[in-house]
């Protein structure tokens, strides 16, 4: 099979369905007096790969952290997989079970081995038997290409390996949505590729993904929508081709000229 065929086959899997996974309407958030997120409206369907970019302090991380209630919103509605995010702990826990999150600084548990990191939530949240959880975890560690590190501690791995473990750890919960909060920003340049490869593969498998990142190559390759945020607002939203080649707002143009200049 030629490269083109493989890519085409992968593309065919990246289908966007009509099923709505996330709906955010007129959502606002404040930190004290500071208005961080302003009138956010966003719908995400199953299978979408959305890249969120913008200058630092634009509220992009805060936005995806609102989607699993790591941050509380003060106004508007957020629905995830048919459940509304409110102060109700039951709803929050239900949503968190279905939404995986990967952090900028990996946030692996340093006192547990790689395998234990991966099995912790399936065992304690999904009440899965230990053997089964380990089997599933080994499967995902193989997918992120580090099964041989299973018995090591996170502190013994490189940054890229740690981030791949973090992705595997989230996948072990069999999530419907994956949130990525600047997953490659804390990595050395030569390690970014190995993490992005895993994410591209995940996208090809049809995972619903929201990704805050500055990796524009990744956005062009897998995203079906790119969202540009600034000052707590969604400024522009478009398919990657249009977004990069024909940005509408002056702020988007300025941002793109800055990050693509090098």
């Amino acid at each position: 099979m030629s490269d083109q065929d493989t890519a085409a086959a992968a593309q065919s899997k990246m289908q966007v369905s009509d099923q709505e996974m996330i709906r955010i309407t007129q959502m606002h958030k404040w930190y004290g007096q500071f208005h961080v997120l302003k009138d956010i409206n966003l719908n995400v369907n199953a299978g979408e790969r959305i890249v969120i970019c913008g200058p630092s302090g634009s509220g992009k991380s805060t936005l995806i952290r609102c989607m699993n209630r790591l941050e509380e919103h003060q106004k508007g509605e957020i629905w995830v997989d048919g459940v509304e995010l409110t102060g109700d702990l039951k709803n929050i826990e239900q949503i968190r079970r279905e939404v995986g999150m990967v952090f900028q600084h990996f946030n692996l548990f340093p006192h547990l081995t790689v395998l234990e990191n991966c099995t912790l939530a399936p065992i304690w949240v999904r009440k899965m038997p230990k053997d089964e959880a380990e089997e599933i975890a080994m499967g995902f560690l193989e997918r992120v290409k580090i099964p041989e590190q299973a018995s090591k501690f996170p502190g013994q791995l490189s940054g890229g390996q740690q981030q791949r473990v973090a992705i595997a750890r989230s996948l072990c919960m069999n999530p419907k949505i994956m949130l990525f909060d600047e997953p490659t920003s804390a990595l050395d340049p030569e390690m970014i590729a190995e993490v992005l490869d895993v994410m591209v593969e995940l996208a090809h498998d049809g995972m619903t993904m929201l990704c805050v990142t500055h990796e524009m190559g990744f956005a062009k390759k897998v995203a079906n929508r790119v969202i540009f945020m600034d000052g707590g607002e969604i400024i522009e939203e478009n398919v990657p081709d249009e977004f990069f080649n024909n940005p509408q707002s002056p702020r988007t143009q300025e941002f793109l000229s800055q990050i693509l200049a090098h």
Binding site: N68, G100, F103, N107, A121, V125
Partner: peptide, 15 residues
């Protein structure tokens, strides 16, 4: 303990 540890635990649904 970094805040991220609690967040990671929360994000995976641990009570």
């Amino acid at each position: 303990i970094p805040k991220g540890q609690r967040e990671a635990a929360d994000a995976m649904g641990l009570k």
